[in-house]
C-alpha cells in the first residue's frame, strides 16, 4: 500500500516534462505495491488514466479502491466516460497544466468541465448520482470528512478515549494535510 501510494504521488515535474501517459501508466501498473495491495494483477489502462486525472483534480492522497468504484459508477452513468477522461488527460498534457486551480479556468468545454466537477464531487462526497439513483462509493474515505478531521470525527467513529474531548476551538486556517 505504501509503495503504491508513493507511486500515486505523480510528480508535477514529470507531467511538465511531458512524460507520456502511457509511460506513466506502464510504471504504475508494474508497481508490485499495487499488485499486492488490491489483488489486481493488470490494472486496466482506463483506470490508471482515471487515477492520474483524479490526482490532478483532487490534490490529496487517493484510495485506489475508492477510485475503482468511482470509475465504475461514472462509467455506468455517463456515456463515453473513458473518452471524457482521455480528453481531460490530453488537455492536461497538451497545456502542461500543473494543478486543478489552473486547469478549471482553462477548461472552456462545459461538458468536460462538468465531468471534472463530477469526479471531484465523487471523491469528496463519496456518492455518484447515477441514472438509477445514488451510488455510494465511499463513506469513510470521502474527502469532505478529512477537511475537518482534526476537530470532527467521521460520524459513527470514535473521536478519542471516552470524555477525552474538550472545548478548545481550533483555528480555521490549520488545514489538515490529507
Amino acid at each position: 500500500m505504501t509503495s503504491f501510494r508513493k507511486e500515486l504521488k505523480i510528480n508535477r515535474r514529470g507531467l511538465l516534462l511531458g512524460m507520456s501517459a502511457l509511460a506513466t501508466a506502464a510504471s504504475f501498473t508494474q508497481s508490485p505495491g499495487l499488485a499486492a495491495s488490491n489483488g489486481y494483477i493488470h490494472e486496466p489502462d482506463s483506470i490508471v488514466q482515471f487515477m492520474l486525472v483524479s490526482k490532478l483534480l483532487v490534490p490529496h492522497e487517493l484510495d485506489p479502491f475508492v477510485g475503482h468504484k468511482i470509475y465504475n459508477a461514472l462509467s455506468d452513468s455517463e456515456e463515453g466516460f473513458d473518452n471524457t477522461v482521455t480528453a481531460l488527460q490530453n488537455f492536461i498534457m497538451k497545456n502542461a497544466v500543473v494543478d486543478v486551480e489552473h486547469l478549471m479556468p482553462a477548461l472552456t468545454d462545459v461538458a468536460l468541465k462538468n465531468s471534472a466537477l463530477k469526479i471531484i464531487s465523487a471523491w469528496y462526497s463519496g456518492v455518484v448520482h447515477g441514472k438509477s439513483g445514488d451510488r455510494v462509493v465511499a463513506f469513510e474515505e470521502a474527502l469532505m470528512f478529512k477537511v475537518t478531521n482534526d476537530v470532527m470525527t467521521i460520524p459513527s467513529y470514535a473521536k478519542s478515549a471516552p470524555n477525552a474531548w474538550n472545548a478548545t476551538a481550533v483555528p480555521l486556517l490549520n488545514m489538515p494535510s490529507f
Partner: peptide, 9 residues
C-alpha cells in the same frame, strides 16, 4: 455497555 467515545452519531 461501553462509555461514549464521541462517535457523534
Amino acid at each position: 455497555r461501553p462509555p461514549c467515545c464521541g462517535n457523534n452519531n
